[in-house]
């Protein structure tokens, strides 16, 4: 690959990211200068011990949190230079979050949870028009995830693995540029966790960019690039390699 090609394939470019929390008089720096680039089509695993700042980093990449310093460039723009509504739109359109504890809305059934992200950017009349394309898309996604028989169930009726698959479908409904998964298998037994990894593998092979955070070496093996976060810093030898 030429230099220019790599440049073009860079999806997210984080530079000098720092995140500080102030607790009482003390300040705690959780992310201490992270430079990171994610290329399109990559499956990147960020490995780190509990409390090393993985979730915080992921939230920063997804524009859910703002850093104390540094930038994340997406599509030639620093997302933190955007005003609130544009950042909301970035999260809605270009990012899909998957959390350790699934975080499905308990009042909504499976199909509604999946369609939620598709509804957010649309008004009631716009949704009336869009529903006819979005619903089949959601059904197809759920079918691929083996959940076709669960469409009208509420999250409380589903197993952990099923819930996580619904969460993945929800994250993917708007065809995001990057899927940000925060310990997606962390709350599941090994076997179910492997099933989730297989699902991610499948989407990755179809071209989905994934950034996955985990504290488990074994899980990180599934990714095609692994970097380690230690005390808010990336291990130097891995940082911009491979």
């Amino acid at each position: 690959m030429t230099d220019t090609a790599t440049q073009q394939d860079t999806l997210l470019q984080a530079t000098g990211l720092r995140k500080m929390y102030r607790m009482g008089g003390q300040s705690l720096e959780v992310i201490r200068g992270v430079d990171l680039s994610v290329t399109r089509g990559q499956w990147l695993a960020i490995l780190g011990a509990s409390g090393s700042g993985k979730s915080t980093l992921l939230h920063l990449l997804g524009g859910l949190d703002r850093p104390s310093q540094g930038s994340v460039v997406f599509d030639k723009q620093n997302i933190f230079a955007m005003r609130g509504p544009r950042l909301d739109r970035y999260r809605n359109r270009h990012v899909g979050f998957v959390f350790q504890f699934y975080h499905l809305l308990p009042e909504l059934n499976v199909i509604e949870n999946v369609l939620l992200a598709a509804m957010i950017s649309r008004s009631v009349p716009a949704w009336a028009g869009a529903r006819s394309q979005q619903r089949p898309r959601a059904l197809k996604l759920l079918d691929r995830l083996g959940l076709s028989h669960r469409l009208n169930h509420r999250p409380a009726k589903l197993s952990g693995g099923e819930r996580q698959r619904v969460a993945i479908a929800r994250a993917l409904i708007n065809q995001p540029d990057v899927l940000l998964a925060d310990e997606p298998t962390g709350n599941l037994d090994a076997q179910t966790g492997d099933q989730i990894l297989e699902v991610l593998q499948e989407f990755h092979q179809a071209g989905q960019t994934i950034v996955m955070v985990t504290h488990d070496h074994r899980i990180a093996q599934a990714a095609d690039r692994v970097i380690t976060l230690r005390d808010g810093k990336l291990d130097p030898e891995q940082s911009e390699a491979s």
């Binding site: 809305l105 308990p106 957010i120």
Partner: peptide
């Protein structure tokens, strides 16, 4: 509260 966080994560605005 948690559901509100989820909504924000999937792109809902403050106003929303």
């Amino acid at each position: 509260t948690r559901d509100i966080g989820v909504l924000r994560a999937v792109g809902a605005s403050r106003g929303g």
